[in-house]
Design a binder for these strands. Sequence first.
DNA 1: TCTGGTGTTGCCCCAATTGCAACACGGCGA
DNA 2: TCGCCGTGTTGCAATTGGGGCAACACCAGA
Lengths: 303, 303
Amino acid sequence: MRHLKTLQCIADVATSGSIRQSAARLAITPSALTRKIQDFESELGTPIFERMPQGMRLNAAGELVLRHIRAQLADFERLRSQLADLSGVRRGHVTIAASQAFAHGLIPHEIAAYRAQHPLVSFSVLVRDHIHAVSAVAGFEADVALVIAPPPAPEFQPLLILHQPLCALMSKDHPLASARTIRLRECLQYPIAMPGPTLAIRHLLQAALVRLGLPVHTVVESDSFEILRSYASGENIISFQIRAGVPEASGNLVAREIDQRDLPPTQLVLGQLRGRSLSVAASKFVDQISSSLHSRYGDGTTG
Amino acid sequence: MRHLKTLQCIADVATSGSIRQSAARLAITPSALTRKIQDFESELGTPIFERMPQGMRLNAAGELVLRHIRAQLADFERLRSQLADLSGVRRGHVTIAASQAFAHGLIPHEIAAYRAQHPLVSFSVLVRDHIHAVSAVAGFEADVALVIAPPPAPEFQPLLILHQPLCALMSKDHPLASARTIRLRECLQYPIAMPGPTLAIRHLLQAALVRLGLPVHTVVESDSFEILRSYASGENIISFQIRAGVPEASGNLVAREIDQRDLPPTQLVLGQLRGRSLSVAASKFVDQISSSLHSRYGDGTTG
DNA sequence: TCTGGTGTTGCCCCAATTGCAACACGGCGA
DNA sequence: TCGCCGTGTTGCAATTGGGGCAACACCAGA
């Protein structure tokens, strides 16, 4: 879009921190980009970048401007989506920031279901921990976020809250696999594939372990659920995952809920930036994922 | 601002309904304006205007676009205000839609007090009845609205609600001027200068008169409080006004509250568009007017 | 049918934007 | 200390995009 091009350039330079780099990506010359920024700054009456020998960095005014630009671009996307909906076709782009727990089963499944009905809607999935997922939403980088135990933030508006038990992941031949729910103590009699410290459930586990004073035999620690799953399915190792993060068809992997006396249910929250109105495409995707989660796991409360 | 110029042109054409007229106002030729709009439409992929022999009219998509444009322009104003605040000076423009009741005393007084501290902030005052004041806020034409008994609208977010008695306006020599509060019945023994049907208090009065079954001797009816006031101060005629709309220093005019058994207190509401964030200038003006009204008339509740 | 209103189009021109190349400056390693 | 490579910036020339002028097509009302 013509009238947004300058804004996009500025946003790009702000994130890359380099004019030459952005110029290459935007397929223009550095000189043109420099002048675009200079013109914008002079129109605004204030510099928005600090010129460092290493490149460009936003100053305080620039942070404000960047936020404004992101909002403008997102709002324009919303307009396009609304216009497309007017003519009967749903069109648009949805960016969702999700905890890694959902990157394997839930998110691709929901996106596939949505795109089956609305093939002109495209998606971006940002895998972020709960902190960064919330700030992605706050910074207009993502439309919505699906996270575990989000940090309390006034600008993050929950659209759906589920309370989910943590599950132990294990091979279906595992001695514990016959039980319906198991105690944390039982798990710890086996080697553990421990979620890394960037994963939200790590902290929940940690807190419970400290509280119960139980020793842990960690054989592997990883930030990747992919890794954890493969360990859990291969040996008699146990790993952990939130209920909704357990893939439906998971080979010889089974999930058993941890007794809630050991680990209280965890909040699973789907949310957006407070006060922001989503595009039609995004808003309908929220509806779908909400009703899907709600019907599958119940206990949903909208707020 | 360069990148907003096309948007402003479109907004102008949308309101004027005529390319030639807008072209004259914007100091460009009609041909240039036509092409601007055509380019925008082709970029968007949809026409946003219907070309009629009488001029241009927005279609459904255009209504969406206009709303988007107004939002963008308002948001940019907010950015400028924030940037100015960064450098210590408050700067910006505030548009307030107010009932005519406040056009004489309250609004100019508050604006003067504000501008005494922040002379770089400018104001627009739109005098509108309660319906149109609310829709001005909803359509991004005004930042805030100060109205009597606003119609219920989900997108209108009250920032301050006062409950105000209606007052009878009369000369200070008037027989009723000695009383503290008076009954509606007493007023009607005198000739009445009746607010016109576009004024909100007319409907309140009307309802009470019908309920009490009282006959009215209307000598003049006017949509202008200016007119009503001059009648009330000149002869022994009585007119009406909401408490906060009574000018402080009003010559030989006095205001006496109507007994609340006859006329229940009226809502006086200061509000904005729900979910919209105001510019620094506007937000601080809201603070000032809120605390001013609150301390003068009490009974304020924020919601 | 004529007149006055509308928006639109072809052509021309000017000005704003871009690209290329050279520049100035700062960090870093030899 | 010097040279190199990185950064952003500037002069000048080429190009593009936007604007003005005049003529056009269309429609409503007299």
